[in-house]
């Protein structure tokens, strides 16, 4: 993990939808988190293969090239311990389960809101 109590948290937004990426990045910025964005799971894996400077990853489920489940599994296999939050507009118990099995720390239904994101940050990064 890159941050300590004196530095800003850094998050990676992984989503193929530019509208959602824009909103998620803005929400993170508003909450004092620095944010980077990539278009799909493969881009996230490639990025984290070189260097992991992230404290949090917001991982979408359905994406082209590599979806969120595959990307999460690969990241965990690579030894990445960063908090990963699975996101999907399909809020079924099944989706939550497959996401958790893939290795995410938590699952949140889309669209992400200020309240939902704030509670994630409080839950995992109390300081």
């Amino acid at each position: 993990m890159s941050s300590n109590s004196n530095t800003k948290l850094i998050a990676l937004v992984v989503d193929d939808n530019k509208i959602m990426r824009n909103i998620e990045v803005k929400l993170l910025t508003k909450l004092g988190v620095e944010a980077c964005e990539v278009y799909n799971g493969k881009e996230a894996v490639d990025l984290l293969r070189d260097e992991n400077e992230f404290d949090l990853i917001l991982m979408d489920l359905n994406m082209p090239v590599m979806n969120g489940l595959e990307a999460t599994r690969l990241l965990r296999e690579m030894g990445v311990t960063t908090r990963i939050i699975g996101l999907s507009s399909q809020a079924s118990e099944y989706v939550r389960e497959v996401f958790m099995e893939a290795g995410v720390d938590d699952f949140v239904e889309k669209p992400l809101s200020h309240t939902k994101l704030a509670s994630i940050l409080t839950k995992y990064f109390k300081n």
Partner: peptide
């Protein structure tokens, strides 16, 4: 309600945030 959330994200640093996101939509 989500539209209201969008509006609350708009600030001095991004005064056209809603317009930009909605135009993308």
């Amino acid at each position: 309600e989500q539209y209201k959330q969008l509006q609350q994200l708009q600030d001095e640093s991004t005064p056209n945030f809603v317009l930009e996101v909605v135009s993308l939509f």
